[in-house]
Design a binder for these strands. Structure first.
Lengths: 339, 339
DNA sequence: AAAAAATGGGTAATCGTTAACCCATGGGTG
DNA sequence: CACCCATGGGTTAACGATTACCCATTTTTT
């Protein structure tokens, strides 16, 4: 195994180099120690020979913290979304010589307990990340341990939050469809989610801004019951068929996410409609696996997960506690050929 | 922020409880300390009031290691595959009160450097995980620091490895197609990957075992160039069209992964064939997002990522260094309705 | 009743790193 | 010549948890 017992310490190096521990420390970690270049070189060489690896645990005893950013994730850390957030965090943290340490809330969803677990490692700061954009109610004790919320909003309003600008994204993509000459846009939305509600608002707002009747535009749920449950029954096929049969069939369908779009593609194809000639399709997510492999490739609004991660790291690493506010980060329009 | 400076230490608790540090330690961490129940209760209470959180760094100074399992991932740790591995690791590690600490090989792909970074945290053991099943050549220095390879094989043969049983999976799914009465099976495979080569072997072997001509069965590449490059040009449409036009059109198509299957679905639909009546479709991966949303839902072989993670954790946490061998873990057949 | 053992603690060293101080030497300055 | 200070180090005390060892009381055993 790794055999931690074999790793050399500064003391071993100092002994071998005939200097004090402090001098060895200074040479290797650039402390305030002054020494001749010859001494420094010798120490570096010996450290190399001995395979010296800094012991962060020992360092942290003086520093008070480990060079870690802790992240608590409310669902499995391993979801496609959470991972993009981690990527953003990791990139920014790495620049500050920090590592990201992610733990998932256990089955019991006990934030206080999970917070205790992660604090045993003495991270420099802790973030809370949600899998889907939502409001979160944290126990009171969490408010002063968690420095920033990612992809969710603290219900109590005590913690700075980073969330996607759902409404703005809906406005942008709707406008994009309008600019491409589409006039009858239907929206097959994700029901029961905060994101869905905000996007519907933006969708209608963009229509109104274009001088159209915002209330008349159809907004339909993609599934019965909550989404992301395996048992959720898809309504997409039925909706598409009904829309095409109606008196005013749509010339564009906006989808709640790329998987919904995938089903819309299948339904349109069954009905003999071609994309984008007969009906344009656009959605939210930019799930690359799906969006690029659909035929034609899908135009979609990419979620700012990575940007949220990056920004979170900057907030977490800044010396000053950040002002408590809600940052809404913009989506990015990824144009392919379904519009 | 978290304000590590404010967290109470055992000393604070001992002072408040009027006992020695050792007694406080014994009460909280169940050491060998004997004490009355009253004393223990009092200490626990005070620890609660003070919000005591164990300092793993301090503990690790004596123990020699932190309660961490390090994982080096050769691609982004955040890929769909890697995350399933982490899930498996995490579940098993949690049972042993360990945490999983995952770092991604940086852009420079420098294993030695990344190993140094992770060793600064003094993990109990380190695993190396690959995103796709492959052979990996590690620098010599890595061989005694890395205890197990996940989803890849050490080229030098010095480290125990856990890999998916590609050949066995291909045999199983091919047999499944044969048992369902299919006789003309085409395989649109992933070229240039170890997995692809092994699966082709299994595919042909299953045909031979069934008394058919293994060499005659068509095995075609899904893409030109390497797969998983954005620039890879898909050949799926063309292959399907050619197969259907040939003198002996297939009654089943086996796909290299679920995304290939997605394209096969589209091509079959364009050609007016129905699934599974005219042509059965099966694949490898079980990428749930895709497999369950296709119409009809896709029958596919699920990769044993989580099982590899679980088994890796058990190996990493076992006291004895494991024998150096290659474990081939079985896929799982997920029957849906495309066969 | 004396000896042995269990009970309920305390003391102090240790792990590896850092950092606040201290100490020589030697060259330049008043 | 006395003084100052830059150079190139060394000493030692933390940091928090663990643990080997020690010391009193009780309680049990012989």
């Amino acid at each position: 195994m790794g055999d931690a017992a074999l790793t050399a310490s500064l003391n071993d190096i100092a002994l071998r180099a005939g200097v004090s521990v402090k001098t060895a420390s200074g040479a290797l970690h650039g402390g305030s120690a002054r020494m001749s270049d010859a001494t420094r070189q010798r120490i570096l060489e010996i450290a190399g020979e001995l395979g010296y690896v800094t012991n962060f645990a020992a360092r942290s005893m003086r520093q008070g913290w480990m060079p870690l950013i802790g992240v608590i994730s409310d669902e499995l850390i391993t979801s496609r979304f959470a991972t993009e957030i981690i990527r953003g965090l990791d990139g920014a943290a790495r620049a500050a010589e920090m590592a990201v340490f992610a733990v998932t809330l256990g089955n019991r969803r006990d934030v206080t307990k999970t917070l205790g677990e992660i604090r045993q490692f003495r991270p420099r700061a802790i973030a809370y990340a949600a899998m889907y954009h939502k409001k979160v109610t944290l126990p009171p004790s969490a408010a002063d341990a968690i420095a920033v919320m990612i992809n969710c909003q603290d219900d109590a309003g005590l913690i700075p939050s980073l969330v996607p600008d759902e409404e703005g994204a809906a406005i942008e993509i709707t406008r994009h469809l309008l600019e491409n000459g589409r006039r009858a846009i239907a929206f097959i939305n994700l029901p029961g989610l905060l994101a869905g509600a905000l996007r519907e608002k933006g969708f209608r707002r963009a229509l109104v801004d274009a001088g159209m009747d915002g209330e008349a535009a159809p907004v339909l749920p993609a599934v019965r019951q909550t989404i992301y449950s395996d048992r959720a029954q898809s309504l997409v096929s039925a909706h598409v068929a009904a829309l095409l049969d109606s008196s005013s069939p749509p010339d564009a369908i906006l989808c709640g996410n790329d998987r919904v779009a995938m089903e819309v593609y299948a339904a349109l194809r069954r009905a003999g409609r071609s994309i984008p000639e007969d009906v344009a399709v656009a959605s939210f997510d930019n799930q690359v696996d799906i969006a690029t492999r659909l035929d034609p490739p899908l135009t979609t609004m990419a979620l700012p997960h990575r940007a949220m991660g990056r920004m979170a790291a900057n907030i977490l690493l800044s010396a000053e506690p950040p002002p408590v506010e809600v940052h809404r980060l913009p989506f990015q329009l990824v144009e392919r050929s379904s519009v």
